[in-house]
Amino acid sequence: MKLTHITVSALALIAASATVASARDQIRVTGSSTVFPYSQAVAEEFANQTGSPAPIVESVGTGGGFQAFCGGIGEGHPDLTGASRAIKKSEYDLCATNGVTDISEALIGNDGLAMSISRANTYDWDMTLGEMYTALAAQVPVDGEWKDNPYKNWNEINPAFPDVAITVYGPPPTSGTRDAWVEIAMHKGCEQLEFVKAGGFDGDWVEENCSRMRTDGPFIEAGENDNLIVQQLNANSNAMGIFGYSYLYENLDQLKGVKFGGIEPDFDTIAAYDYEVARPLYFYVKNAHRGVIPNLQEFIEEYMSDAALQTGGYLAERGMTPLPEAQRKEYQTSVLGAVNMEAPTE
Rank of each mutant, 00 (worst) to 15 (best):
C210R: 08
N209Y: 03
G257F: 00
M186T: 05
V258K: 09
G257C: 08
V196C: 08
E221T: 03
A278Q: 05
G200I: 01
S211Y: 09
S211Q: 06
Y275L: 03
G200T: 04
R214Y: 02
Y249A: 13
V182Y: 04
G241E: 06
L228F: 14
E191V: 00
K256P: 07
E208I: 00
Y247I: 01
F219G: 04
Y275P: 01
C190A: 14
E224G: 02
I242D: 04
N234M: 12
E250C: 01
V277Y: 09
S237K: 15
V277L: 12
D268I: 00
Y247Q: 06
G223N: 03
Y273I: 00
S237T: 14
S237A: 13
A271L: 04
E221H: 05
D253M: 00
Q232I: 00
E250M: 11
D202Q: 08
L193Y: 10
V206I: 08
V258Q: 10
F243N: 13
S246V: 07
P218E: 08
E191C: 02
Q192R: 11
N238K: 11
E221M: 06
T177K: 07
R178H: 15
R212K: 15
G262L: 08
D274Y: 03
L252C: 00
G244L: 08
L233K: 05
L255E: 02
Q192C: 03
V230G: 09
G200W: 07
L193P: 07
V182P: 06
I242F: 12
N225H: 07
D266F: 00
V277D: 10
A272C: 01
W181V: 02
Q231N: 14
R279K: 11
E264D: 10
D253A: 13
A278N: 07
D204M: 06
N236M: 07
A180R: 13
M240W: 10
G262P: 11
L248C: 06
V230Y: 10
I263P: 07
V206Q: 10
N225R: 12
F267N: 03
E221D: 12
A271D: 04
R212D: 09
G261E: 04
E224L: 13
E183V: 00
L248M: 01
V206T: 14
N236C: 05
Y247L: 06
S237R: 13
R214W: 07
G199F: 13
L248D: 06
N227L: 08
V206F: 10
N227E: 13
F260E: 08
